[in-house]
Simulated assay, not measured.
Amino acid sequence: MKRRNFIQTVSGGAAAAYLAANPLLGFSGAHSAQARELSEHTIDQVLTKRVRIQYPRFVSKNAIRGNHGWGYDETICEVVTNQGAKGWGVTLWGRSAEEASAHLVGKKVSEVFAPELGLIEPKGAYADIALHDLAGKILNKPVYELMGAKQPETTVCYSGMIYFDDLTPFYNQPMGVDIILKECQFDYDLGYRQFKLKIGRGNKWMPKAAGIKRDIEVTKLVAEAFPDCDILVDGNDGYPLEDFEQYLKGIEGVKLFWIEEPFRETIEDYTKLRALLKEMGIETLLADGEASPDQDFLMQLMEARLMDVHLTDIQDIGYTGWRKLMPELKRLKVFASPHAWGSQIKTNAVAHLTGAYGNTVTIEGVTCISDDVDLGNYRLENGKLIPSSAPGFGMQLNK
């Protein structure tokens, strides 16, 4: 099932149609009270804005993509009601603001959103995350409480910002592997106790043999320098199976928390990888589903016990999609870790989702600053991210 169909499926269904037609019916107690309060707000505007995200350091290459730079401009959606309530969040990829406006403006919030389900108007998916924030602010609840958790489960959070910065020219000279250790120390001082190392230097940026050697060197150095931290590795589909075996042999003795997307996933190759890990006595998690995910195929991998952690990006299937997916992952005994690369805006939003639903092994941390956004009172303590208890996602726009 492709992304658009999947979003429509998880956002729709008989319950959603019933709620859309009868927003104040079918619930009792707190549910009906929330619906009544949301029904007092009519959506006036669906706005698109751009906010500038800055990273604390230059972010270099991964196995397939060039330098990521100092930051980027993120597209966000803001929903405004006739009473002046505002909610915002990152948008869903592949959906349009025009479609959302056509199907949301003029409707009561309760007609398009239910705290118990999420989005109930599939064609408003562009504003899915913004509507969660809006409902939380109207109801004066953090999003995790909106989804039923009085206190969220704190989630382990890894640093997702360890790229190939050793290959970035600095005054016409490579910076070398020491820069990776300095960056890990910087992130350690921020509170991270897990580091995800990008690997696959030999895919595009170095000769293959030299790239594998450098990947091995970096992995071993970080593991030795930070013995109290977990090491995750991410090949971004740039590491053929035969080369990945060489890498694994080269880091013998280093415990990997997870292996993420070493190569483009197939049943055959992942079966071989599972067998290789068993033969080498390596106990680790296999994480996949970030890059252009085919949800039907990912389901096949999970049912075959070839995938341990589901990574689809929060901007791909949205909050409502993930809320539908979470129970399925629990049934399949697969962990969740909604992909959040890009900015802390996404990391913070994911923290509420995983805090409410649990079953999450770790989430991606992307440290950033922004003059356009107040990122709220989230705390990273001893490797765990504690969500804001302010209404909605607890983040505010400064523009």
Rank of each mutant, 00 (worst) to 15 (best):
L221D: 11
L221T: 10
L221H: 10
E224W: 08
E224Q: 15
A225L: 07
A225T: 15
P227S: 09
D228K: 11
I231P: 04
I231F: 06
I231T: 00
L232T: 03
D234L: 09
G235D: 10
N236R: 08
G238T: 03
G238C: 00
Y239Q: 11
P240Y: 06
L241V: 07
L241W: 06
L241Y: 13
E242M: 11
F244R: 00
Q246H: 12
Q246M: 11
L248I: 02
G250P: 10
G250C: 10
I251V: 14
E252V: 04
G253A: 11
G253C: 09
G253S: 12
V254Q: 02
L256N: 05
F257K: 07
F257E: 05
W258L: 12
W258S: 02
I259D: 09
E260R: 04
E261Q: 14
R264L: 12
I267R: 08
E268R: 12
E268K: 13
D269Q: 14
D269K: 14
K272T: 02
L273M: 13
A275N: 15
L277P: 02
L277F: 04
E279T: 12
I282D: 01
E283A: 10
T284A: 08
T284S: 09
T284V: 11
A287Q: 07
E290T: 04
A291K: 06
A291L: 10
S292Y: 14
P293S: 07
D294M: 09
Q295N: 13
Q295C: 03
Q295I: 12
D296I: 00
F297M: 13
F297N: 04
F297V: 06
L298N: 03
L298H: 08
M299N: 14
Q300G: 02
Q300M: 11
L301I: 06
E303V: 10
L306F: 05
L306W: 05
M307D: 09
M307P: 05
T312P: 15
T312C: 13
D313N: 13
I314W: 00
Q315S: 09
Q315V: 13
Q315W: 02
G318Q: 11
T320I: 00
T320Q: 02
G321E: 01
W322I: 03
R323A: 14
M326K: 03
P327G: 00
K330S: 03
L332G: 05
F335V: 05
F335G: 04
A336W: 09
A336R: 04
S337A: 15
S337T: 11
H339L: 07
H339P: 10
A340G: 01
W341G: 07
G342P: 01
G342S: 08
Q344T: 06
Q344G: 12
Q344E: 11
Q344P: 00
I345M: 15
I345Y: 00
K346Q: 11
K346T: 06
T347V: 04
T347G: 05
